[in-house]
Protein backbone atom coordinates (compact mmCIF):
# COMPACT_ATOMS: atom_id res chain seq x y z
CA UNK A 1 0.00 0.00 0.00
CA UNK A 2 2.56 2.49 1.16
CA UNK A 3 5.01 2.02 -1.73
CA UNK A 4 2.18 2.45 -4.26
CA UNK A 5 1.28 5.89 -2.92
CA UNK A 6 4.92 6.80 -2.41
CA UNK A 7 5.67 6.11 -6.07
CA UNK A 8 2.50 7.90 -7.15
CA UNK A 9 3.67 11.00 -5.26
CA UNK A 10 7.10 10.70 -6.88
CA UNK A 11 5.28 10.56 -10.22
CA UNK A 12 3.40 13.76 -9.37
CA UNK A 13 6.70 15.39 -8.42
CA UNK A 14 8.32 14.31 -11.71
CA UNK A 15 5.37 15.65 -13.68
CA UNK A 16 5.58 19.05 -11.98
CA UNK A 17 9.34 19.18 -12.32
CA UNK A 18 9.06 18.39 -16.01
CA UNK A 19 6.36 21.02 -16.52
CA UNK A 20 8.51 23.64 -14.79
CA UNK A 21 11.53 22.79 -16.93
CA UNK A 22 9.36 22.72 -20.05
CA UNK A 23 8.27 26.30 -19.43
CA UNK A 24 11.53 27.90 -18.31
CA UNK A 25 14.00 26.41 -20.81
CA UNK A 26 14.21 27.91 -24.28
CA UNK A 27 16.44 25.23 -25.78
CA UNK A 28 14.33 22.70 -27.65
CA UNK A 29 16.40 19.67 -26.61
CA UNK A 30 15.76 20.57 -22.98
CA UNK A 31 12.07 20.91 -23.72
CA UNK A 32 12.11 17.39 -25.22
CA UNK A 33 13.90 16.05 -22.13
CA UNK A 34 11.33 17.79 -19.93
CA UNK A 35 8.47 16.24 -21.89
CA UNK A 36 10.04 12.81 -21.40
CA UNK A 37 10.35 13.38 -17.66
CA UNK A 38 6.68 14.44 -17.58
CA UNK A 39 5.74 11.26 -19.46
CA UNK A 40 7.72 9.17 -16.96
CA UNK A 41 5.84 10.88 -14.12
CA UNK A 42 2.46 10.09 -15.67
CA UNK A 43 3.45 6.46 -16.25
CA UNK A 44 4.67 6.19 -12.68
CA UNK A 45 1.35 7.47 -11.34
CA UNK A 46 -0.60 5.05 -13.55
CA UNK A 47 1.42 1.98 -12.60
CA UNK A 48 1.60 2.94 -8.92
CA UNK A 49 -2.18 3.32 -8.75
CA UNK A 50 -2.57 -0.02 -10.55
CA UNK A 51 -0.60 -1.70 -7.75
CA UNK A 52 -3.30 -1.03 -5.14
CA UNK A 53 -4.46 -4.66 -5.14
CA UNK A 54 -3.97 -7.67 -2.94
CA UNK A 55 -2.50 -9.99 -5.53
CA UNK A 56 -1.75 -9.30 -9.17
CA UNK A 57 -1.58 -5.62 -10.15
CA UNK A 58 -4.02 -4.31 -12.76
CA UNK A 59 -2.62 -5.51 -16.11
CA UNK A 60 -4.68 -3.03 -18.13
CA UNK A 61 -2.70 -0.11 -16.77
CA UNK A 62 0.54 -1.95 -17.46
CA UNK A 63 -0.47 -2.57 -21.07
CA UNK A 64 -1.42 1.08 -21.48
CA UNK A 65 1.92 2.20 -20.08
CA UNK A 66 3.85 -0.11 -22.41
CA UNK A 67 1.93 1.34 -25.34
CA UNK A 68 2.62 4.80 -23.95
CA UNK A 69 6.36 4.18 -23.70
CA UNK A 70 6.54 3.17 -27.36
CA UNK A 71 4.46 6.16 -28.43
CA UNK A 72 6.66 8.43 -26.31
CA UNK A 73 9.84 7.21 -27.97
CA UNK A 74 8.42 7.65 -31.47
CA UNK A 75 7.20 11.15 -30.57
CA UNK A 76 10.64 11.94 -29.16
CA UNK A 77 12.29 10.80 -32.38
CA UNK A 78 9.96 13.00 -34.44
CA UNK A 79 10.50 15.95 -32.09
CA UNK A 80 14.28 15.60 -32.33
CA UNK A 81 14.18 15.63 -36.12
CA UNK A 82 11.88 18.68 -36.03
CA UNK A 83 14.36 20.36 -33.68
CA UNK A 84 17.18 19.70 -36.15
CA UNK A 85 15.04 21.19 -38.93
CA UNK A 86 14.41 24.30 -36.82
CA UNK A 87 18.12 24.57 -36.29
CA UNK A 88 18.81 24.26 -40.02
CA UNK A 89 16.12 26.80 -40.87
CA UNK A 90 16.97 29.44 -38.27
CA UNK A 91 20.49 28.60 -37.11
CA UNK A 92 19.32 28.14 -33.52
CA UNK A 93 17.75 25.28 -31.65
CA UNK A 94 15.23 27.59 -30.02
CA UNK A 95 11.84 28.87 -31.00
CA UNK A 96 11.93 32.46 -32.19
CA UNK A 97 10.29 34.99 -29.88
CA UNK A 98 9.02 36.98 -32.85
CA UNK A 99 8.54 35.80 -36.44
CA UNK A 100 11.75 35.91 -38.44
CA UNK A 101 12.08 38.89 -40.79
Amino acid sequence: MIPAFLYALVGVGLFTLGLYALIIHAHLLRKILALNVMASGVFLVLVALAARTQGMPDPVAHAMVITGIVVAVSATALALVLMLRVRIATGRAELAKEPLE
Binding site: A50, I66, T76
Partner: peptide, 30 residues
Amino acid sequence: RLDAPDVALAEAAIGTGLTGALLLAALTRL
Protein backbone atom coordinates in the same frame (compact mmCIF):
# COMPACT_ATOMS: atom_id res chain seq x y z
CA ARG B 1 9.28 -2.52 -7.22
CA LEU B 2 5.75 -1.84 -8.43
CA ASP B 3 5.35 -5.43 -9.69
CA ALA B 4 5.37 -4.46 -13.34
CA PRO B 5 8.09 -6.60 -14.97
CA ASP B 6 6.61 -6.12 -18.45
CA VAL B 7 6.89 -2.35 -18.16
CA ALA B 8 10.38 -2.73 -16.70
CA LEU B 9 11.49 -4.71 -19.75
CA ALA B 10 10.01 -2.18 -22.15
CA GLU B 11 11.57 0.72 -20.25
CA ALA B 12 14.96 -1.00 -20.10
CA ALA B 13 15.06 -1.50 -23.85
CA ILE B 14 13.34 1.72 -24.95
CA GLY B 15 13.62 4.28 -22.18
CA THR B 16 17.30 3.82 -21.60
CA GLY B 17 18.67 2.25 -24.76
CA LEU B 18 16.78 3.76 -27.65
CA THR B 19 15.86 7.15 -26.22
CA GLY B 20 19.43 7.67 -25.06
CA ALA B 21 20.80 6.75 -28.47
CA LEU B 22 18.29 9.05 -30.19
CA LEU B 23 19.10 11.98 -27.92
CA LEU B 24 22.86 11.56 -28.23
CA ALA B 25 22.65 11.24 -32.01
CA ALA B 26 20.54 14.40 -32.18
CA LEU B 27 23.01 16.24 -29.94
CA THR B 28 25.88 15.21 -32.21
CA ARG B 29 24.01 16.50 -35.24
CA LEU B 30 23.11 19.67 -33.35
